[in-house]
Amino acid sequence: MKDLSLQWRITLMTAALVCAACLSTNFLVGYSGMQYMDEIGSEVSAYGNVNEDIPKSFDPGSEDVGNELTIVVSDAQKSFGVTSWYITALVTLIGGVLAYFASGRALRPLRAFAAQIEHVQPGNLADSKISEDVLPEFKRFSESFNGMIHRLDAGFAAQRQFSGNAAHELRTPLALMQTQMELFAVEHPDVPPATNDLLTLLRDQTERMSSMTSTLLEMSELRAIPCNDEIELAPLIEEVLADLAPLADQKGIALACRGNNLVNGSDPLMYRMMFNLVENAIRYSRPASTVDVTVDEEDDRVLVRIEDEGFGIPEQHRDSVFQPFFRVDKSRSREYGGVGLGLSLVWEIATLHGGTIEVENSSSHGTVMLATLPKLGVTK
């Protein structure tokens, strides 16, 4: 019973009630009907016995006619009983069918509510509130849900504001440190090797922290960027591939792009999303391999697939790779550079454009990242 949906539970309970009501009615009506038939048979027999002037051939009280009448009444009782059972089964079946469709209609607001919950994402909380003009049974439910959405939205907003403020505060001292180290290296070209190694390490780590704070600042300011450009994907992706060609050439990786389509959005953000995805594919793909970017369409969506020939992503990590600072293999990520925010920024940009990003397929032969975006003219 626990595995049954609410609609089937209501249907089965209604059918059981209808069946119980029909059985009770069948028993009471059948019992009274049988009694009346017996009384009618007795009355007819008695009536024939008191009318002696009627010829015997027409005498309903005669022995032969009485037996025939008893048989007719008995057959009528059996037929009445069988017919009543058929009617009971038919009424129960019809009642169950009507209950199924009636309960389905009554539960339609709940289905709509569940469908809306499925589309709730951290990036669209403000647009996920449901109308409170609903049935009385769902009113408190909708009020509680909207209150939860408001609290979550406020929490995410505070988190974004903290990240932005922290990035702003860190950017200036990091830039100052980079400038001072570069100036020191120019003014002291003959420093000992140990000091030079230390300065190189400090410059690399400072540059890495600067890159991280810049990305955090971008993520905190995404919502302020308008997304109303008409973007043709093929030229944008070709530009991305041209910019990343030197990195691909270092590993002997061939870059290819197929397909085209139009989407709504921010041209700089869309460029950044594609750049991060292709750069990530190049960095983790095997040397002398290929990175393919294909653009397809399906119904009202545009599908962009970035396929590499890397070592793959373990299945248990395929949802986690879009979390900030998450690394599947920390040692390899350090070797290839990056701060663990590239795919997180991609996820934020895709969500801002009303789309999604996911690992469509991954194995030891490579990974396919799938970005899904609304087609031009389609409401997010």
Score class of each variant (00 low, 15 high):
residue 313 I to E: 10
residue 36 Y to Q: 14
residue 15 A to D: 05
residue 106 A to L: 13
residue 268 P to F: 04
residue 357 I to T: 08
residue 298 E to F: 02
residue 211 S to D: 14
residue 105 R to H: 07
residue 302 V to H: 13
residue 81 G to C: 03
residue 379 T to G: 11
residue 64 D to L: 10
residue 260 N to K: 11
residue 145 F to A: 14
residue 208 R to K: 15
residue 61 G to F: 03
residue 291 V to F: 05
residue 215 T to P: 00
residue 255 L to H: 13
residue 368 V to D: 08
residue 90 L to Q: 14
residue 246 P to S: 14
residue 206 T to N: 11
residue 20 A to W: 01
residue 153 D to S: 11
residue 26 N to I: 01
residue 215 T to W: 03
residue 314 P to A: 06
residue 210 S to K: 09
residue 3 D to E: 10
residue 159 Q to G: 09
residue 331 S to K: 15
residue 80 F to P: 00
residue 33 G to K: 07
residue 260 N to R: 08
residue 352 L to A: 15
residue 70 T to L: 11
residue 136 P to D: 05
residue 56 K to H: 03
residue 249 D to W: 02
residue 59 D to I: 01
residue 271 Y to I: 01
residue 92 T to G: 08
residue 119 H to W: 05
residue 276 N to I: 03
residue 51 N to C: 10
residue 8 W to G: 01
residue 253 I to T: 05
residue 55 P to F: 02
residue 285 S to D: 11
residue 202 L to V: 02
residue 360 E to G: 10
residue 375 K to Y: 09
residue 67 N to Y: 06
residue 200 T to Q: 09
residue 122 P to T: 02
residue 20 A to R: 06
residue 199 L to D: 03
residue 175 A to F: 01
residue 67 N to E: 08
residue 145 F to C: 08
residue 187 E to Q: 12
residue 373 L to Y: 12
residue 106 A to T: 04
residue 170 L to A: 12
residue 286 R to P: 00
residue 51 N to F: 12
residue 107 L to P: 02
residue 115 A to D: 14
residue 92 T to E: 03
residue 286 R to A: 13
residue 64 D to W: 04
residue 101 F to M: 09
residue 156 F to M: 12
residue 335 E to P: 00
residue 23 L to K: 04
residue 77 Q to F: 00
residue 22 C to V: 04
residue 139 K to S: 08
residue 234 A to W: 07
residue 374 P to Q: 11
residue 41 G to L: 14
residue 271 Y to T: 07
residue 352 L to K: 10
residue 40 I to R: 14
residue 307 E to M: 09
residue 216 L to H: 06
residue 306 I to V: 14
residue 252 G to W: 08
